[in-house]
């Protein structure tokens, strides 16, 4: 269902947005040589109590209790586990949520990273009131985009202004 890691990112961040987060950080860390591929997403949204945090990881559990079944978290957990990796979700009501996944980069079932550029672009300009910190690291380079910094440089001009959209699109093409 999710054929790109970048789509999982979009989806997990969508949860953070629904949870009312104002600050969201997304870290992707790849080791070109080794088996390490980390995805770490943190938000300061409403959070979950520990019982909910457990439940949302299991779609079957949710079905039995008759709740609407969420797919986003179980799908990511599934991708992590099929590749022999690990998934962890920590959350605190009123403070926020963190999801950290380690994929096994060498596994044949690991989906490609996919279009990270589009994911970053649409998140940044589609949610102007939220601050995002995107970090991509591999053994040869590091890319960081902090939308709080972008907004500061822009003064009162919104991050979703057409000229800013065009700029960010080119900037990501060039630097990411």
């Amino acid at each position: 269902m999710m054929d790109e890691i970048a789509s999982h990112i979009m989806d997990i961040v969508a949860n953070s947005l629904t949870a009312g987060a104002h600050n969201i950080s997304v870290l992707i860390e790849k080791d070109n040589e080794g088996p390490l591929f980390i995805l770490d997403i943190k938000d300061d949204g409403v959070g979950m109590d520990s019982e909910t945090a457990k439940k949302v990881q299991d779609p079957f559990f949710s079905t039995k209790t008759g709740r609407k079944v969420g797919l986003g978290i179980p799908l990511l957990k599934g991708t992590a586990e099929t590749t022999g990796g690990t998934f962890s979700l920590t959350s605190e009501p009123g403070r926020g949520t963190r999801i950290r996944v380690a994929f096994n980069a060498g596994h044949p079932d690991l989906p490609p990273l996919g279009n990270l550029k589009d994911t970053i672009l649409v998140l940044a300009v589609g949610n102007p009131e939220v601050n995002f910190l995107f970090t991509y690291k591999d053994s040869s380079r590091e890319f960081v985009l902090d939308t709080a910094e972008v907004k500061e440089l822009l003064g009162g001009v919104p991050i979703n202004h057409p000229e800013v959209i065009s700029f960010l699109s080119k900037y990501l093409d060039e630097h990411l």
């Binding site: 269902m1 989806d11 799908l75 589009d118 649409v122 057409p162 000229e163 959209i165 699109s169």
Partner: peptide, 26 residues
């Protein structure tokens, strides 16, 4: 942008709107 929306291409749709608005200076 729910899970099934994303799985069926919502990101590409959002990206198209965003880029068209940038390109046409709307």
């Amino acid at each position: 942008m729910g899970t099934s929306g994303i799985a069926s291409g919502a990101r590409e749709v959002l990206k198209t709107f965003v880029e068209e608005i940038g390109r046409r200076n709307l």
